[in-house]
């Protein structure tokens, strides 16, 4: 089966491996779903998604928040390596 959107073999293997990891964590994710998620996330972060039917240059629509990936939640509140070592009081 050939893919419409072609990836470099190494990148596709990365997607397969990462999708496999995410699937092990309880969510069933295919490599192409992960690719779509990453593209959507990248576009949303750029805030450059054009509004549907918009003709005015630069018009944008409100974008959905990007799908949260592990890094967004895991490190919520941790900004520097020094903060990783927890010190009470």
């Amino acid at each position: 089966m050939s893919r419409i959107v072609r990836f470099q073999p190494a990148r596709w293997e990365d997607l397969e491996q990462l999708a496999g990891t995410l699937s092990q964590e309880g969510r069933s994710v295919s490599p192409s779903q992960l690719a779509a998620m990453l593209v959507e996330r990248g576009l949303a972060e750029l805030s450059l998604v054009p509004a549907p039917g918009a003709s005015a240059p630069g018009a944008t629509r409100a974008v959905e928040p990007p799908t949260a990936l592990l890094g967004d939640e895991y490190f919520n509140g941790l900004r520097s390596i020094a903060q990783c070592l927890d010190v009470e009081g």
């Binding site: 990891t21 995410l22 890094g71 895991y74 390596i81 903060q83 990783c84 070592l85």
Partner: peptide, 28 residues
């Protein structure tokens, strides 16, 4: 998550560093 084992991580470099910092925290 820090990407220092034989399992893949999806974190970028900065977050991998933070994960390693957390590993040190849990390691102590």
């Amino acid at each position: 998550n820090a990407g220092v084992t034989d399992r893949p991580t999806i974190l970028d470099h900065h977050n991998r560093q933070l994960a390693l910092g957390l590993a040190a925290n849990w390691g102590l």
